[in-house]
Simulated scan of single mutants.
Amino acid sequence: MDAVDRQILNRLVVNGRASLTDIATEVSLSVPAVKRRVTRLERDGIIRGYTTIVAEPGNSRIHALVEVFCTEHAQREDAVRLFESRPEVRLAYTVAGDSDLILLVRTDNADHLEQLLIDLRSHPIVLRTRAQLMLNSLIDRVTL
């Protein structure tokens, strides 16, 4: 992947519906050349898909970062099984630091968040959790 590929990717991150013509103009390539690069990036798994991001009216949902502290015998596969069955878990990362995992979760309300935390803590690999509610978004962008 070279600098031109990164320019194309950044443009698609900002606007996944950007036309190949617009992208070609921005990166000073022909449309067929941009098409070949996008196709290659898709084939190589660099571009894994395209999506629509829907704004939630009135910020009615609760977003939280949840730190998960696991038993010393917890395996990565155990965590994957636990979280993939929970649609509230939007992202899950293993991390270096005090906690073992950090989750980005989205729930309908505080009661829903509380129940999610109770459910997580009842799992055998989870020792404890610590949650931080996200109040306002200051910057929301994806970078490469």
Rank of each mutant, 00 (worst) to 15 (best):
M1L: 07
D2T: 03
A3E: 14
R6P: 02
R6G: 11
R6E: 15
I8P: 00
L9D: 05
R11Y: 06
V13P: 02
V13S: 14
G16F: 04
R17N: 14
A18T: 04
T21S: 15
T21W: 03
D22H: 13
A24N: 07
A24V: 02
T25P: 03
V27P: 00
V27R: 04
S28C: 09
S30Q: 10
V31M: 02
A33S: 14
R37V: 07
T39F: 11
R40C: 14
L41P: 01
E42P: 03
D44V: 04
G45M: 05
I46L: 08
I47P: 04
I47Y: 08
R48M: 03
Y50I: 03
V54P: 04
E56A: 15
P57G: 14
G58P: 00
G58I: 00
S60T: 14
S60I: 02
H63G: 13
L65T: 09
V68D: 11
F69Q: 05
C70F: 05
C70P: 02
H73M: 06
Q75T: 05
Q75F: 02
Q75L: 12
Q75V: 06
R76H: 11
E77Q: 14
D78C: 08
L82R: 06
F83V: 08
F83K: 07
S85Q: 14
R86W: 06
P87V: 00
P87F: 01
E88D: 08
V89A: 12
V89R: 11
L91G: 08
A92I: 00
Y93F: 11
T94A: 15
T94K: 14
V95L: 06
G97H: 04
G97Y: 00
D98G: 13
L101M: 15
I102P: 10
L103Y: 10
L104E: 08
L104P: 02
V105G: 09
R106T: 08
T107K: 06
T107Y: 04
D108W: 02
N109A: 05
A110S: 14
D111L: 10
L113Y: 07
E114C: 04
E114W: 01
L116P: 03
L116W: 02
L116N: 09
I118N: 09
I118C: 12
D119E: 09
L120C: 05
S122L: 07
P124N: 07
I125S: 13
I125R: 04
V126Y: 00
L127V: 01
L127Y: 02
T129V: 05
T129Q: 11
A131D: 09
Q132W: 01
Q132G: 15
L133G: 13
L133F: 06
M134V: 12
M134S: 15
M134D: 11
L135Y: 08
S137D: 15
I139H: 10
I139M: 15
D140K: 11
T143H: 12
L144C: 08
